[in-house]
Design a protein around this nucleic acid. Structure first.
Lengths: 178, 178
DNA sequence: ATAATTTCTTAAGCTACCTTAATTTTTTAT
DNA sequence: ATAAAAAATTAAGGTAGCTTAAGAAATTAT
C-alpha cells in the first residue's frame, strides 16, 4: 500500500527519543510541537485541575500515538502533561512535518484518518461508560480492556483515569476480593 | 481543492431524508448503515442504560456529521439511538459508498480525516471537563459553548448530556439566578 | 379549547463517592 | 542495607448529586 520510498520518507521525519520513567514528552503551558508514536514503553496524558489534582486523559502503549490533539493541531500551549510511566522509546512527528507528509504523500491522510477515527471511537465509548456506569463497573471494564496497563501503573493513576479517588478505588478492590 | 466532478460524485452518494421531530435516524440494535450530515435541524445521540435512562452522547446541529461511529465502521448493530430533536433535513452516506468514495476520490480521506480529528478533539476536551469539573461548572461551560442548543433542547436532555439528573440541573439553575 | 402528556420545580431523605488523617506496604534513592 | 518517598489501606465524617414524590408549568394532541 505504501511503497518503500514513501515509508523511508515518513521515517526520515520521525525523531526518536528515549524517555526515562517519569520523564516528560510534553508539559502544560509548553507549545505542543509533536504527535508521538510509542515504540515501546507506556505514556500517560493528564490534566492538572485547579486543586493540583491530576485527571488522566489517556494511557498509551506500544504502537499508539499520543498528543494533546487540540493544542497540537492549533499549535498552542499544551493543556496536558504527557509523562513516561515506564522507560519508553518514542518517535516524534512535528506539525509542519506532518503537514509536509500529507502534501507529499497523500496516502498518509488515510493512515491518520484511521488513527483519528479509532481515537474518536475510543473516546465515544469511554464517554458512554462514564455517563452510564458506576465507578465499580468502570473499574471492572478497565481491567478487562487493559489488563496489561493495570499491571504497569499505580492504582492512583487508574483512579484518576476512572474519575475517582485512590481511596475509593481501594474500597472497590477490597469489596471484590471478599 | 475538490473539483466539480468530485463534488458531484460525492453528492450523488448522499441520500436526503426529512426527519420529523421525534423521528429516528438510528435505533439501538439496528444495523448502523449510515453516517449522516445534518443540513438543518438538530439531532441527538443517546444510549439507554440498564434502568432505561438515557445518556446523551452528543448533540449535532447543521453542518455536523453524526453516527454511532464504532458500529458504523464495523457495520454492527447500533448501541445508540439517534433522534431528531427538531424537524431536520439530513444526508445519509452508507459505509460501502463512503469506502467507494475514498477509493475513487482519495481527497475525501483528508476531508474525513479532519472530521474525525475534530470529533476526537471534542471528545478529549469533554472527557477532561468531566473528570475535573463539578456539575455546575460543566453546565456553565455548556451554556457558553452551545448557547443555541440550550435554547432548543429540554433541560432533561441537557442534564443527561452533563451526566446529572434533571432535578439536580434544576437546583443548579435556581442557585444561579439568586 | 380542552385534555393528556411531558417537563420543570421543590423538598426531604438517601447514597455513592469524597475528605482527612493515620498506619502499613511498596518503591525509590543513597 | 538503609533511609526517604510514594503508594495503598483503613476508617470516620462529610457532601455532591441521586431518589422519590407531588404539584406547577409548558407542550402536544384531539
Amino acid at each position: 500500500m505504501l511503497d518503500e520510498e514513501e515509508i523511508t520518507y515518513f521515517i526520515s521525519l520521525l525523531k526518536q527519543e528515549d524517555v526515562p520513567k517519569k520523564g516528560f514528552v510534553l508539559r502544560e503551558g509548553h507549545l505542543c510541537k509533536n504527535i508521538s508514536y510509542i515504540n515501546s514503553g507506556l505514556l500517560r496524558a493528564y490534566a492538572p485541575d485547579k486543586e493540583g489534582r491530576e485527571a488522566t486523559i489517556m494511557f498509551a502503549v506500544a504502537d499508539w500515538w499520543i498528543t494533546d490533539m487540540f493544542c497540537f493541531i492549533n499549535q498552542q500551549p499544551a493543556m496536558l502533561f504527557i509523562e513516561a510511566v515506564e522507560n519508553s522509546s518514542v518517535f516524534h512527528l512535528q506539525k509542519n512535518d506532518l503537514d509536509k507528509l500529507y502534501s507529499k504523500v497523500p496516502k498518509f491522510e488515510k493512515f491518520f484518518r484511521i488513527i483519528m477515527q479509532n481515537a474518536y471511537i475510543r473516546e465515544q465509548l469511554r464517554g458512554m461508560q462514564n455517563l452510564s456506569l458506576s465507578a465499580e463497573e468502570r473499574y471492572n471494564n478497565f481491567v478487562i480492556k487493559y489488563p496489561q496497563i493495570v499491571k504497569q501503573v499505580t492504582q492512583k493513576k487508574i483512579a484518576s483515569y476512572l474519575g475517582i479517588t485512590p481511596e475509593f478505588l481501594s474500597a472497590i478492590r477490597k469489596n471484590k476480593t471478599k
